[in-house]
């Protein structure tokens, strides 16, 4: 009897799949690539994280050895973990808030200024590699504009090696990363503000809202919770993934790993030392860290959103 029941359910499932065969066909080309280049790599990383693998010979199963090494024996990992958390906790929330703030203020502007300012703030991301110019601005000799300015004003006596000095490289890169961080989330906010129903403001004014702050907190933010969630996801991806800026400005790896993050360390372990097993272990740790942050932040925003 039970067997028959299951059979009929299977049949209906199969039937439903057949009924939607065109949907699957439409998705097939994309999904094939997506599974090949996103899903399989993530799954493979999880499997390889328990092995010793150098790309040439078959991976050797080593159990939790890589994980133990990562947490107990690898001092460099602890340094890059610390750097990653500093990057994420500083650039993540700050650029999230800046994105929101800029989008809000841009929304106050007139029809001609608005697209211009949006372009201006988005330009560093749009320009892609233009951040290389920070290498010129921060150049370690007195030809660097920043050194030269600070020396003329008298704050510095001799040129600073901003991107080599272990004490300055991390803060400097954080500023550059903030400059580069008004990305997709920022655009989502700009769009969210422009989309808010104008009649709500009118109603609000009648109900006693008297300035732009009250408008923001009582009308706009509650209406934008979806954009807030989307931007948070994009922001987490961006702030844990900081890598190209670091390697292109401060070197690969940076002096004493002073500004390396988990991502650049994975590249170091993987592409220069070819310890792919261990690189996968660190990658899996990073995946877990990002998913954890995401769940935490989505939870906080959702709670914040439903209170209003």
């Amino acid at each position: 009897m039970k067997k028959k029941e299951r059979l009929s359910r299977d049949l209906t499932l199969g039937h439903r799949i057949w009924q939607y065969r065109e949907s699957y066909l439409l998705m097939a080309p994309y999904m094939l690539l997506f599974f090949l280049l996103t899903v399989i790599p993530v799954v493979a990383a999880i499997c390889l994280s328990f092995t010793d693998f150098n790309m040439l010979s078959w991976p050797d199963f080593v159990g939790f050895e890589n994980y133990l090494r990562m947490f107990l024996d690898d001092k460099t990992f602890l340094i890059v973990l610390k750097n990653t958390l500093i990057f994420a906790f500083l650039t993540g929330p700050v650029s999230y808030i800046l994105s929101f703030l800029f989008a809000w203020l841009i929304n106050e502007l007139g029809d001609r200024m608005r697209p211009f300012m949006t372009l201006l703030f988005y330009m560093p991301v749009l320009g892609g590699n233009v951040y290389f110019v920070w290498g010129l601005l921060l150049s370690g000799d007195s030809y660097g504009i920043i050194n030269s300015l600070l020396m003329q004003v008298g704050i510095l006596n001799e040129p600073q090696e901003w991107l080599v000095n272990q004490n300055t490289v991390l803060p400097v890169l954080i500023v550059v990363q903030l400059w580069l961080s008004l990305g997709t989330g920022f655009l989502a906010f700009v769009a969210g503000f422009q989309n808010t129903d104008k009649s709500q403001f009118e109603a609000g004014a009648i109900d006693g809202i008297s300035n732009r702050w009250q408008e923001l907190f009582y009308i706009t933010i509650p209406g934008m919770s979806q954009q807030l969630l989307f931007s948070a996801v994009m922001q987490i991806g961006a702030s844990f993934g900081v890598s190209a800026v670091i390697t292109n400005l401060a070197g690969f790896p940076t002096t004493q790993y002073a500004a390396d993050t988990i991502v650049t360390y994975i590249m170091d372990v993987g592409t220069t030392r070819f310890e792919m097993g261990y690189a996968s272990t660190i990658a899996v740790f990073l995946f877990a860290l990002m998913m954890f942050s995401n769940n935490l932040i989505q939870g906080v925003i959702r709670r914040f959103g439903t209170e209003d």
Binding site: A45, F240, A283
Partner: peptide
């Protein structure tokens, strides 16, 4: 399920999956 996977994968930017992707492509 697929929609959830797509949202989740927004987190995994190209720099984060770089090495595992490199292995598969190699």
């Amino acid at each position: 399920f697929l929609n959830q996977v797509m949202v989740m994968s927004l987190l995994f930017t190209s720099s984060v999956t770089y090495i595992p992707q490199y292995i598969v492509m190699a």
